Simulated assay, not measured.
Amino acid sequence: MGRLILGVLREVNVKSGLPATTSTERLELLDDKEHILGIKIVGGDHRLKNYSSILTVHPDVSEGRSGTLVVESFVVDIPVGNTKEETCYFVRALINCNLKSLSDVSERMAICPHSDM
Rank of each mutant, 00 (worst) to 15 (best):
M1P: 13
G2E: 15
G2D: 15
R3H: 13
R3W: 07
R3G: 09
G7N: 05
L9S: 12
L9W: 14
E11L: 12
V12S: 02
N13G: 07
V14Q: 08
L18Q: 04
L18P: 07
L18T: 03
T21H: 12
S23F: 03
T24D: 02
L27W: 00
E28W: 01
D32R: 09
G38R: 05
K40P: 02
V42K: 06
G44A: 05
G44Q: 04
D45N: 14
D45Y: 02
H46M: 03
R47V: 11
R47M: 14
L48V: 04
L48M: 15
N50H: 13
S52E: 05
S53I: 00
S53A: 14
I54Y: 01
I54T: 13
V57N: 05
H58M: 10
H58Q: 14
D60M: 12
D60N: 15
D60Q: 14
S62C: 15
G64N: 12
S66Q: 15
S66A: 14
T68M: 11
L69Y: 06
V70D: 01
V71L: 10
V75H: 00
V75S: 03
I78T: 11
I78M: 01
P79I: 00
V80L: 11
N82K: 13
T83Y: 01
K84T: 07
K84G: 00
K84D: 02
V91W: 04
V91S: 03
A93W: 00
A93D: 05
L94M: 08
N98V: 01
L102I: 10
D104N: 11
D104C: 04
V105K: 08
V105D: 06
S106C: 10
E107R: 13
M109A: 13
M109T: 09
M109G: 06
I111F: 10
I111N: 03
C112N: 13
P113L: 05
H114F: 12
H114Q: 12
D116H: 10
